[in-house]
């Protein structure tokens, strides 16, 4: 465990070199949130109106959080890196190293994203305060729980994207699969809370990773409820386990194939 912590720390250090790029990325994040702010501002007739149980401010905060979680997981970059590792044969060099490839990928990627996540949180909160003038009603403990849940969300996303990247062992190019994954999360998790969809889709979302990655933490932030928090945290832990299992199986299968083909 210690070596993964070390990898994590050194990635944080090296990500500091790209601080200018991170700040530029914030322009992209702010623009997206700004577009959604305008969109919902147009749709809601007044501030007291409820749509599917959400006020205008809750709706916009929901998107600030989900968009934040997506930005802070840097999924596209991670997927590209793993695809390149697999296809370029880099992964072969990792087989006889004294750490697990998946452990290495996760700790280094989380390290790379930590600074960006912190800055995104700050930018998101500032944006919300300027355009909405208020924070959702949430206690300090609530905020801490939301932060834990947000971390778990990014962790699950990271492991799942790793698994998608590892699919490149079997199919030539895993990026189309990644596109679909990211679009499904975007539409069903980031843009709208699940209450906006018909019952059947709500059920699907409830039992899919979207609940753990997007809906859960964002819902907690806009409408905190301790009972809900327990359910969401437990669901997230289960997903961490499942995702780790899947990516380990894919990795082992892939490496076997690699041995057969001689890299």
């Amino acid at each position: 465990m210690k070596k993964y912590l070390y990898i994590y720390k050194s990635e944080i250090m090296s990500s500091l070199q790209y601080i200018f790029n991170i700040l530029l990325n914030m322009v992209g994040y702010t623009v997206l949130v700004f577009i959604f702010f305008n969109l919902w501002d147009y749709i809601y007739e007044d501030a007291s109106q409820l749509i599917n149980g959400y006020t205008k401010n809750q709706m916009i905060w929901y998107i600030i959080v989900t968009e934040m979680l997506w930005q802070a997981s840097g999924a596209r970059k991670l997927c590209r890196k793993i695809c390149e590792d697999v296809r370029g044969g880099n992964i072969a060099y990792n087989i006889n190293k004294p750490y697990s490839y998946i452990g290495y990928v996760i700790s280094s990627h989380l390290g790379e994203m930590t600074i960006k996540a912190l800055i995104t949180i700050i930018v998101g909160i500032i944006f919300g305060m300027i355009f909405l003038n208020e924070l959702p009603q949430i206690s300090l403990i609530g905020i801490i729980i939301v932060l834990i849940s947000a971390f778990l969300s990014i962790l699950i996303n990271t492991i799942l994207v790793t698994a998608i990247g590892l699919l490149s062992f079997t199919i030539e190019d895993a990026s189309p699969i990644y596109w679909l994954y990211s679009k499904v999360i975007l539409i069903l998790g980031t843009m709208f809370p699940m209450e906006f969809f018909p019952k059947i889709i709500q059920t699907i979302v409830r039992f899919s990773p979207i609940y753990a990655i997007s809906y859960g933490p964002a819902r907690l932030f806009v409408n905190f409820d301790i009972k809900n928090a327990v359910v969401i945290l437990i669901t997230q832990m289960i997903y961490v386990g499942i995702a780790l299992g899947i990516s380990n199986i894919l990795y082992k299968k892939g490496v076997k194939k690699l041995n057969v083909n001689g890299g």
């Binding site: 530029l24 623009v31 997206l32």
Partner: peptide, 22 residues
């Protein structure tokens, strides 16, 4: 990164109606 940010700006705005902006 500057160029990427600028290009994303166009892509993002071009998929929403201009009427919502003021």
């Amino acid at each position: 990164t500057v160029a990427d940010t600028a290009n994303d700006l166009i892509t993002n705005f071009s998929t929403y109606p201009d009427g919502i902006f003021k």
